[in-house]
Nucleic acid binder design. Structure first.
Lengths: 363, 363
DNA sequence: CTGAAAGCGCTTACAG
DNA sequence: CTGAAAGCGCTTACAG
């Protein structure tokens, strides 16, 4: 830098030029013995340039390390905000939603721009700025819990967006989310319907991935059936290992419930694996219902009964909804206030081998 | 459109204006009672605009549906080319590589741009055009087989790029890939070392994900030990269901090998599950070694012995290598020819419960 | 298919 | 913190 300034003292008029100089289409045109018009056409992949000319231009671009300073935006991007933790894309929940999003977006001609999600940026101002900076037509947010938009008076209706996954408060937000309360309720109701009366729950202490709402559904179902929670284990971790420790804890008690709701698949997998190691037979000794996002629960030695999240379809639905918003905002630029969309998804129960009717009926 | 033209007939001078008119920063400045300079500052998130002014500008942007026609590029993107098939991102192989890429790229301050991979675009000209169009500093290509760059005289050295996954021919390409031949060899060598002499293979008829190279490694190991392939099953599909059908086929034969190499995890999972259903005990009746990309093989009832692909680390390594290339190309713009990098990865064997020493020793 | 030249929308150095 | 104005690099209508 110092050198450049020193040089430029010799020729003050070149000061700015020297300091700022980077390759422009003018340089390319010169090097390729062509014009800026043709370089521009090649840059943008437009037809009507002789192959030889295009080749010379491409060569010059490579030789001079050309990168344009700006270009006309095409708005062919959708930004997807990814939960900001390590190895996030390996979670089946996120991978499947994202898979639904990319498959649909690619088919529609959009590209996908991934960005880490940042709680601080969850307001209309920052989101709009991000869309502008990324030249994006809209954004999709994969949510893990209900706290993505903490402010009560948020209103995103003027920005094309869809939040997909778990529910946010209903304040001017477009979202497609799992009805976790109902899922918890349905899972529990099923156990009650097949005769269980001593039902416990294994859950996670954090609000993420609907654990809390699932627990509330669980309690509601027991209440309606006038039953008490038999055993409730709450863990600080929602991993396979945590599930194993829950099993050790439960089966070292004097008595244990005849059925269990486990609020996510990793906990359930760990629990069932460890139960087996301890000589407990599922479903003979205990029935288990869980919530699943991958194929794993169905491939265990005892395939598990589970509430199944349709993550891939949710990704597709979210992308289609976003596309509608984008098209609408193109049509009537001065349209009146748009109603925000809030679509709740009821997820199905898949009955497999980890549950069975209660055998001992008291007379 | 017709209406606009009709209107414009009244005032020919406005023809172009009317047809092309979209909101510009000039309109925003007017609506927000400010100047284009301030609008530009707000757009780019620069400091030095009074909050109230910025708020007026943001409001105007929302009201007028503003999107800039272009902006100064920041080259803060990396393009990742994703294999172009449905639900690609759900495959553990791709998800984990991508997870390594995004975690590393985000940490470095890059964003990730996803694009479907297209065989036709696999030449320096199209790749360069794509980098320009996406305002990207470089690209990462997740490869499934060796045929991504069919042309023999390709030379990508002037473009920052890394191909990660399975090997391409070595012609001016930077790549990080699994040594599938050695992996097949090592898996087989292990079975031989623990006493097996009747060893079969279950594989896939396509070239993808290293099946062919793994088979070649398998044959080489048998050859060296002067053994013949006991049974070889080649399937047209590499799914869990195909694995199940392979098991039905094998165990309906009069005799079956004492050990088996299965060239991917889905085939192996299906095979082992079906074997169990048929009353075959692994590893007592047959030992199985497979190749794994997810946690699934380790969570089965009989956890499987497998060659483990370090996909996440490969994603990290590829991103770091790409970043080095980008930094180098920034430093010396007219540097001489760069040597292409070709890094082969030897993957480890994880011994679990699906293999055991051969019991019956012939005297 | 090409290039000279006008024009576009955005950025920025500068003065206040 | 602001705006008038010059300037930037790219695009495009037009003529050939």
């Amino acid at each position: 830098m110092t050198d450049q300034y020193a040089d430029s003292e010799l020729d003050p008029s070149r000061k700015v030029k020297l300091f700022h100089h980077m390759t422009t289409i003018y340089d390319i045109a010169k090097a390729a013995n062509s014009s800026t018009a043709s370089v521009s056409r090649v840059m943008n992949g437009k037809a009507g340039v002789k192959p030889e000319t295009a080749a010379r231009i491409h060569k010059a671009m490579g030789d001079l390390n050309f990168q344009p300073r700006w270009r006309v935006m095409e708005q062919n991007r959708l930004v997807v905000l990814i939960p900001n933790y390590k190895r996030a894309l390996e979670s089946s929940y996120i991978a499947r939603i994202l898979s639904g999003i990319t498959d649909t977006a690619f088919k529609m001609g959009y590209n996908i721009q991934l960005r880490p999600f940042n709680t601080k940026n969850c307001n209309p101002k920052h989101l709009r700025q991000m869309l502008i900076q990324e030249a994006a037509a809209g954004c999709l947010i994969i949510s893990l819990n209900e706290n993505y938009f903490p402010s009560a008076d948020i209103d995103l209706t003027s920005l094309p967006h869809v939040i997909v996954g778990h529910k946010q408060k209903d304040n001017g937000i477009n979202q497609i989310f799992i009805d976790d309360f109902k899922a918890g309720y349905d899972a529990t109701k099923y156990l009650i319907d097949i005769g269980h009366q001593q039902i416990g729950i294994v859950s996670f202490s954090q609000i993420d991935i609907g654990h809390k709402a699932r627990c509330n559904g669980f309690r509601k179902a027991l209440q309606e059936a006038k039953l008490d929670t038999n055993e409730s284990i709450e863990l600080d971790d929602a991993s396979i290992d945590a599930g194993r420790s829950a099993a050790r804890h439960l089966f070292n008690l004097q008595k244990h419930p005849t059925a269990l709701v486990i609020t996510n698949e990793d906990l359930a997998i760990g629990f069932q694996l460890e139960a087996k190691t301890m000589g407990i037979t599922v479903p003979n000794d205990i029935s288990i219902v869980t919530f699943e996002e991958s194929d794993l629960p169905s491939l265990l030695d005892t395939p598990m009964t589970a509430m199944r999240t349709p993550s891939y379809s949710m990704g597709i639905a979210a992308t289609r909804t976003l596309e509608e918003q984008i098209e609408n905002s193109k049509k009537d630029k001065q349209a009146g206030p748009i109603e925000s969309l809030s679509e709740s998804i009821t997820i199905p129960l898949v009955v497999r081998k980890s549950t069975q009717k209660l055998k001992q009926i008291k007379i």
